[in-house]
């Protein structure tokens, strides 16, 4: 106790900044953040529901325009990437840094693959003039306009999350290489994994709502 009292301020400051570590707290913060992400998308799901009730038939017509196989391929890609993400975390926990890096890179590749498919999907729609205020869309009924407005907003926001996820996972890759994230300090990677699962989870709802309900 007396040693505590004679600590100089500088020592306690260092302690304060560097030594304090609370893995449980870090994860708790991440879960709270994910909760806010769910609510962010929640607003969009409410809008989707309200407009689906209002324009039920036009939504069904509009959904036929989307190519199920493209969405399906992307669903498989994202679900698999969640698995590789878990494999990366488990590998790090089991002190196998090389395997962890391998699975992390695989996850990033899958994420980029998702974006490539998305790119082709969107450019195909753009090619037919189906985009907000686009010539192909303005000919259609109001319900279809809203459907595609929501489609671009929701999948676009989701795509943005995928890109942020790629950035986050790349940052983790660098941290692992620099030995900042390591077998006795894997919570940052776990948190990045939690974020990645959320991205996956939201897609699991987006896919049926836009591609399958027609």
């Amino acid at each position: 106790m007396s040693t505590n009292a004679t600590h100089t301020a500088a020592e306690s400051h260092d302690a304060h900044v560097h030594v304090h570590r609370d893995d449980y707290g870090a994860k708790m913060g991440m879960w709270l953040f994910l909760f806010t992400e769910l609510l962010l998308f929640g607003g969009l799901f409410i809008l989707y529901m309200a407009y689906r009730v209002e324009y039920i038939q036009q939504f069904q017509i509009a959904a036929k325009e989307l190519k199920v196989y493209m969405g399906g391929v992307n669903t498989i890609i994202l679900l698999t990437s969640s698995l590789t993400m878990v494999l990366s975390i488990v590998a790090l926990q089991r002190k196998n840094v090389q395997a962890s890096i391998f699975w992390l890179v695989t996850t990033i590749v899958f994420a980029l693959g998702f974006m490539v498919v998305k790119y082709f999907e969107w450019s195909d729609k753009f090619h037919h003039g189906i985009y907000p205020k686009g010539p192909g869309l303005m000919d259609k009924s109001q319900g279809e306009i809203i459907f595609f407005g929501l489609y671009y907003t929701m999948t676009g926001l989701h795509g943005l999350h995928v890109i942020i996820g790629v950035g986050l996972l790349t940052a983790m890759l660098i941290q692992i290489k620099r030995n900042k994230v390591r077998p006795d300090r894997f919570v940052p990677l776990e948190n990045a994994g939690l974020y990645w699962h959320l991205v996956d989870l939201i897609w699991i709802f987006l896919f049926p709502l836009f591609y399958l309900l027609h």
Binding site: L47, A50, Y51, E54, Y55, Y131, P132, K133, S141, Q142, G143, I145, I146, G149, L150, Y152, T153
Partner: peptide
């Protein structure tokens, strides 16, 4: 920016 329509009555929004 783009006119997605969700709040614009002219495009069917509410």
């Amino acid at each position: 920016a783009f006119g997605i329509g969700v709040f614009d009555p002219a495009l069917g929004g509410d």
